[in-house]
Design a protein around this nucleic acid. Structure first.
Length: 112
DNA sequence: CCCTTGACTATCT
DNA sequence: GAGATAGCCAAGG
């Protein structure tokens, strides 16, 4: 366990644990909020190293797609967990929190 | 050391 | 929308 991991992991875990149910954050957002703006690629490593369960599935890509391979085991698990919390999908993308009511219709028109 | 990998991102064609 | 490209940076071989 490097010194970097010790500090980085804690910061990331704390940040991820704070994401509210039904909400999502991108890797870059989590890294930034944790105080490591250029470590988006390290976020997944930190989460994997967590001993306690984290809402890892609330962390997605900046383009609102899931980071795992479509149809893969991990992908499906993440999608199910998110949908259980009320997160909606349009095609492969998560519907942003801001969209409600009428926006829902708009998201269905031209997006995939 | 050098090189490759990866649950990333932003930008350009 | 789909690729390609260029940054990014720790981990592991």
């Amino acid at each position: 366990m490097t010194e970097f991991q010790a500090k980085f992991d804690k910061a990331i875990w704390r940040t991820v644990a704070r994401i509210k149910p039904g909400r999502v954050m991108s890797y870059a957002q989590v890294a930034r909020a944790a105080g490591f703006p250029r470590h988006s690629r390290m976020v997944s490593r930190a989460m994997s190293r967590s001993a306690d369960p984290l809402p890892w599935y609330r962390v997605i890509r900046s383009d609102y797609t899931l980071a795992f391979k479509m149809g893969g085991e991990a992908y499906n698990k993440q999608r199910i967990l998110l949908e259980k919390e009320g997160v909606q999908f349009v095609g492969k993308k998560v519907v942003p929190d801001e969209s409600t009511g009428l926006d829902e219709l708009l998201w269905g028109l031209g997006e995939g």
